[in-house]
Design a protein around this nucleic acid. Structure first.
Lengths: 183, 183
DNA sequence: CTAGAAGTGGACACGATGTCCACTTCTAGG
DNA sequence: CCTAGAAGTGGACATCGTGTCCACTTCTAG
């Protein structure tokens, strides 16, 4: 069980980190910043969160769980019941919303290699793989990561910020992808 | 024009960097390592290459140029003449070969955000975009980056190393993608 | 041969990381 | 209520990589 002061400090850390990430962008926030803003020592911070990514993951956790729940037990087309291509398109749309809402967090958490090591990626992977299997696509394993690649935060942020594309335009492109491969 | 000693040092730096990248993996090589191995001072190194990525780009440059040439003026299906879907599949296959041959370099050079800022990405982007236009795909702009996303070094290396997929399997998945979207 | 431009190298200051440990604060059990 | 010791805390410290700066050396054009 968790001690009372420990719980209080965890809440402080998460709050402070959320503010800082939003204010300065995750990559520009140091562990020291977070510790100071939370009114906590370095040691305390490192005890629970060995790096920035793990904090961002913790902050993201709740939002991702909501989507995961919808995928498993929600209404179609996100949940079970619709055709695989339709479900994939709906999943893409939901992920775009998530990226749009939490861009700064996601950019801090799931950038580069570490993206694949989060539990969330494993979940998305299993979901999309099951859609491929349902659509009788041969050799789904390699295709799964290919279909998830456009959801990498760097890609999305490049499209939005670097290229000035709208989230609706990106969603439409992803729908086309879903229908092309599964439809 | 370039002074003789400068040219000699540039060659030394590139040689040393290639060896180190191959031996230890690009991310584990420090600027200092390279300077020492090249028998050159820090200042000299930084004068030309402000960071690891720029060295890797220089090393990659030649290989990428060969492929670019083939895309512009080579035989079909890589070069002009074949159907867009076929050309895209051929491009994917060539990129997989390139990733396979120079994985360690590419991982050092074009990782994360910086991938989009290299000249090479601009070239691939223009090429794929022209294929989309040739196939009369509506709103190609958002789709371009989506189709290039699976070629991110992190994705490829995750598939190969993390998931144990074969390069042939990945190529097949990408062919399916090309045919689904353009075919 | 020489003047000055171009190039060199390593010392330096800085900033971030992660560890370590003496101290403080909790809480379970008597 | 009190106390023992486990759990948690905080900040000093050592380490490492980065990028800059500048006195010195080497090249080359005239």
């Amino acid at each position: 069980m968790e001690r009372a002061d420990a719980a209080r400090n965890r809440a402080r850390i998460l709050d402070a980190a959320a503010d800082l990430f939003a204010a300065k962008g995750a990559p520009n926030v140091t562990m020291d910043d977070i510790a100071k803003a939370a009114g906590v020592g370095r040691g305390t911070l490192y005890r629970r969160y060995p790096d920035r990514a793990s904090i961002a993951v913790a902050l993201l956790d709740e939002h991702e769980r909501v989507l995961q729940e919808k995928l498993l037990r929600g209404e179609p087309p996100l949940g079970p019941g619709a055709a695989p291509a339709e479900r994939l398109a709906a999943f893409y749309a939901a992920m775009v919303d998530l990226l749009e809402a939490h861009a700064h967090l996601v950019l801090g958490a799931e950038t580069g290699r570490s993206r694949f090591e989060t539990g969330a990626y494993g979940f998305w992977r299993a979901h999309v793989r099951s859609l491929l299997v349902a659509a009788s696509v041969p050799a789904p394993d390699a295709l799964v990561d290919v279909l998830l690649a456009p959801l990498a935060p760097e890609v999305y942020s490049y499209q939005r910020t670097g290229k000035g594309l709208s989230s609706a335009g990106i969603t439409a492109a992803l729908r086309r992808l879903a229908e092309g491969v599964l439809g």
